[in-house]
Every structure is written in structure tokens, then in C-alpha cells.
Computed example of a mutant assay.
Amino acid sequence: MTVIVNAEASPVLFLRPWQDDDLAALVSAYRDPELRKWTLHPIVTDDDGRRWLDLQHQGWESGERMSFAVREEGKDALLGNVVMKRTDPLGDTAEVGYWTAAPARGRGVAPRAVRSLTAWAFSTYPVLVTLELLHQIDNVASCRVAEKTGYLFEEILPAEPPYPYDGHRHCLRRPD
């Protein structure tokens, strides 16, 4: 099992692949209207949560989606999710995404988790040259996370269904 530890500040964050026993915490996190506002596939029921967890497991098996539950040292609370998506497992570009559970917002969890995932991605996949972080233009918090983690603004992406608004594409290139 892959586990990423981020000890850059207290409390220590642990990122680990999602497990079936995360179901209750996952469903609970998705009760938050702010989280549901930014997701395409809200999780309302346990069945929704099981399907989502199955997709995360399949993503690891295919190498197309490496998704981590974000936890805090010594606590049971789920703080969020961070994911690297590779539509072309042999390609040099991947996308980074994340969400933060309501109780964890404003504590620096998202930037720390994104930095940890970024370091892991570049060290684990030598072929990767660029990581992209995409968000809707009206998601100011995601823009701040991109900036805090060194992902530079590249361009405005036009709205495309199912996204109702234009988006931002931020990129971080492999350090030399």
C-alpha cells in the first residue's frame, strides 16, 4: 500500500489509498453543500459511496487514477481527497485534483496534500513532465491552493458541459 506522509507542519498528514472502511466518512463529507457545489458526482447514499470507492480502486489497478484519503496523525477524521489522474499512463502530463472536508478547511490541508501528492507523482513517475490543476473560474479557493503550491496560471479554458463556467489551467513542471 502506498502511503505518503507530510510532516512539514503539525499536525502530520497521511495520504493513503481509499479503503472500503472509509465509506461512512466519505458519505458524511459529501453532506457539505460547498463540497457538492464543486463536484460532478455527489455522493448521497452508501451505494453512491461504494461506487465511488470502486472507481478509486479501479483507478489504481489501471494506473489512470491514484486517489488518496487525507488523514491526520492520531485522528480518525477524514480531511479530504487528493488525486492524480493520468488519461494516458505513458504520457508526460497528468492532472491533480482534490477536495477538502468542511472541518478541515482553512487549516492548510489542501496545499499540504497537493504538495505531497506532487512530490510523490514526480518521484514515482519519471516520465511525468507536467502536472495540471484545473478548476472553475469562480472557485477562488482552488485558485489560491494552486498559487500556494507553485502551480502557475497558464490559461483560461472555455466552459464545456458539464462545466457551466470557464476554468483555469495551472501547471507545475518537473523541477530540474
Rank of each mutant, 00 (worst) to 15 (best):
R71P: 13
Y151C: 09
V140P: 09
E147S: 07
L117W: 06
H170Y: 11
L117R: 08
T93M: 15
G91H: 12
G91D: 14
E160T: 10
L55C: 10
A121K: 13
W52N: 06
D54E: 15
V145L: 00
A77W: 04
L79G: 03
T124G: 00
G150D: 02
L172W: 04
R51K: 11
A77K: 06
D47T: 10
D47P: 06
Y125R: 09
V129L: 14
I137T: 08
V140F: 10
G150V: 03
D48M: 01
P162I: 06
G91N: 07
A104H: 04
T149R: 01
S62Y: 06
R51I: 12
E72K: 01
W99P: 02
R51G: 08
R174L: 01
P111N: 04
A94E: 07
A77S: 12
D47H: 10
V96R: 05
E160Q: 11
V145G: 00
L172H: 08
R65Y: 08
N81S: 05
D88W: 08
G49M: 02
R169D: 06
G59M: 03
Q58V: 07
W99E: 01
T130Q: 14
L128G: 08
E64R: 13
T100F: 00
Q56C: 12
H170W: 04
Y125P: 09
I156Y: 09
S62E: 15
F122V: 09
D88N: 14
K75Q: 15
E61M: 06
R144K: 08
I43Y: 06
